[in-house]
Design a protein around this nucleic acid. Structure first.
Lengths: 227, 227
DNA sequence: CATTAAATAATACAAATGTTTGACTTTTTC
DNA sequence: GAAAAAGTCAAACATTTGTATTATTTAATG
């Protein structure tokens, strides 16, 4: 018995290796397409280990999701808008934040963005928890920024719609990679390109939102802006 | 033998029934989640029939896709922009067109929209064909409209980005139903609501695109608009 | 050192599912 | 009307894959 792994000593290491391999696989291929046997193989563990430490594939997935979320929230806090902040800057920050989460493809990048993307594509029971902990706060931050930008024109439905538009533009670049690729517009993945895209999106969105503010004013006090 | 189906006479009917059941299932559940046995059951046919007429599940899927596309293109031609058209109206038409394809949920509505949505989500080898026949022309129409709207500011990259933004806003409402639902913003599905959403999107996008035209002008000829 | 519990690995189990086979029936064709 | 082709169906096959079982090994504990 030349290469026999120590047992009790590196137990935590086996668990950790399983989590790492599972995270990578779930992030890359999603829940359904992830194969427990492959995860075990890459972790150097056996099926019994998964059962022992987590109980089932779904439990393993939940564990992966929770850990990735924690890491994400710790490393990249949601940009909050402060009363003294310029809402235009805030919007740029928000767009940049979302694009980074979903678009950056460095190996060192946390897997939470990819896991969330899968969860949005194929919701599992874990989606609600995800919304409560991550997506909800992120979205509320956007709603607040949009409300600020709309000013007097702010109103629940319009605010939600504008936020949807910004939100939609951002996630489109992640959710439609294949399409964009084939249209000859590959999705940026480097920090620099992402910031540039964020700037363009922000400019576009600011103009769009402003339009509603203006049309609101003209409605209330006559055609102030059109001569 | 009380209820024995006629054979050769209604052969086409068996094939048709299979196609109908398969179309419904692929549109509702996607390729992977569609069960050939269930399709056969609902079509009143057996597994052998699928093998006989199509050869395999994948071949059946391709057949479904082709037929749905043909129907879509026949029934709802892509809105083309003419030289004398107002590009603002054209944009509204385009947005409305895309929203209708993806959002309308009437039983009578053709299945192509749902099938395309699945194909975008989980690309199969059929995606290329789909792009060539349907998505490509649709997108090129948008590019043309955007180019028109950008005027002198038109330039390949900016044009593609603006088109992406419009495109993204539209498909977001389809691809993120679950999320929007839980955020309290259910996606419209009636003709009336869809048109209203299209109007809002159009107004938003027009302002965004116009911003780039303006900033282009100011770059070329000084700050004409700011004082 | 013996007992116990944790840890691991090999194997078996069960269900889902696309595919294939072979027999049987109906229709066409000469 | 007999042979051939087309159509249909039930059952079998093969694979994948999550889960469960069992035995074995290791480490802690008294």
């Amino acid at each position: 018995m030349p290469s026999r792994q120590p047992k009790r000593k590196d137990a935590i290491q086996t668990r950790t290796a399983l989590l790492a391999a599972a995270t990578e696989s779930f992030a890359r291929s999603g829940y359904e397409a992830t194969n427990v046997r492959q995860v075990c193989a890459r972790a150097g563990a056996s099926l019994g280990a998964v059962r022992h430490y987590f109980g089932s594939k779904e439990a393993l997935y939940r564990e992966v999701l929770v850990l990735a979320h924690q890491e994400l929230v710790d490393r990249q806090p949601v940009p909050q808008i402060l009363p003294e902040d310029d809402p235009c800057d805030a919007l740029q920050q928000w767009v940049c934040y979302l694009l980074r989460i979903f678009l950056i493809r460095r190996a060192s990048h946390p897997y939470a963005g990819r896991l969330i993307a899968w969860e949005l594509r194929d919701p599992t029971p874990a989606l609600d928890q995800l919304i409560a902990k991550v997506l909800g706060p992120v979205r509320r931050a956007l709603d607040q920024i949009v409300a600020e930008l709309l000013g007097e024109a702010d109103e629940p439905k319009l605010r939600a719609q504008c936020a949807n538009f910004v939100h939609g533009i951002c996630v489109f670049h992640d959710q439609n990679r294949e399409l964009l690729q084939r249209f000859g517009h590959p999705v940026p993945s480097s920090e620099k390109d992402i910031v540039a895209l964020a700037d363009t999106i922000t400019e576009f969105a600011l103009a769009g939102i402003e339009r509603f503010r203006i049309s609101h004013n003209t409605k209330r006090s006559g055609k102030l802006n059109n001569g």
